[in-house]
Simulated scan of single mutants.
Amino acid sequence: MGEVASLNDESTAQGGFGFSRRSLLMGCALLATGGVARARMPQRRYPYISKAQLEAMLPKLFRGWHAADSGALIMPPQDELSKKLYEHIVTRVYSNDAGEAVMFLVAYNSRQIDEVQVHRPEVCYRVAGFDILSSTPTNVAIPGGPQVASRVVEAQSMQRKENILYWTRVGKKYPLNWGEQRIAMLEDNVAGYYPDGVLVRMSSIQPRIEDALPKLKRFANDLWASTTPAGRRIIFQG
């Protein structure tokens, strides 16, 4: 009885609401933990940009290449996840006086969050009915710029064969697979911010990948040399 009375007296001493000193201490600790967790939540690193701003960063005429907008390119799968993945998608077909053509796509999101990851062309092309014949790592060496870890993909449908050069950038990293993408996101989250993310894809309809790849890498270098600093940050550097 004496022990019960002591507990009741302690509760009354805390204001008559039935809270013990132990409960109050635990509550304060939980509030402090929640405040620290909130303070450590990642913050947006880059501001939102409009589609018009993104389009303006991508030159339509450079080094003999000229562009037209195109709705005929293979697009990322249209689902609820895609709406989170990409704020804007810009598609163009570039051609030159030599009769060469490059299909070009940039899909951008200023903030990569949670389990959201950039779609890879291997997924998009399969959804569109293509068989993936090969997917191998390569490197795009930009003179005076970054060394961009990329992938080269051969995709075949009943109508055509498409040779694809692409990279994904998450923050300042160029992940080559799903696992590396997730790690890049987590590293930036731990550092205190949400990274942006972009898929840059260029492709050519040619029978031989050996013929297409040098042209696609040359196109990437021409694009770097002709793009504004803001456009380079989005497409290449992070």
Rank of each mutant, 00 (worst) to 15 (best):
D196F: 01
G15F: 03
E154H: 02
Q181K: 01
P47Y: 08
E162R: 13
R218E: 13
A220N: 03
P42N: 04
R44T: 06
A212C: 09
V140E: 14
R38I: 11
Q156D: 10
N139R: 14
L105T: 15
S203M: 02
S110Q: 10
G144A: 02
M103N: 14
E100L: 08
S157L: 08
G64V: 05
L133A: 12
R120V: 11
T136L: 07
P143K: 10
V127D: 11
R22T: 11
V127M: 09
A155R: 01
G179T: 13
A98D: 15
L54M: 07
W167C: 07
Q53D: 13
S6R: 14
V90S: 11
F19W: 11
G15S: 11
L61F: 11
G99I: 04
E115I: 10
Y166E: 08
I183C: 04
E122Q: 06
S204A: 15
A225F: 07
G231R: 03
G192C: 09
I183V: 14
L24G: 03
Q117A: 12
R120H: 05
V36Q: 03
A191G: 02
E115R: 12
N8K: 10
F130W: 03
E187T: 06
N8S: 06
M75I: 02
K215G: 07
W167S: 06
G16C: 08
E80P: 00
G231I: 03
V152C: 06
R22S: 11
Q237A: 13
Q159E: 10
G231C: 06
A191W: 00
V90E: 08
Q159K: 15
S6C: 02
L24M: 13
R201W: 06
Y46T: 03
E87A: 15
L176Y: 00
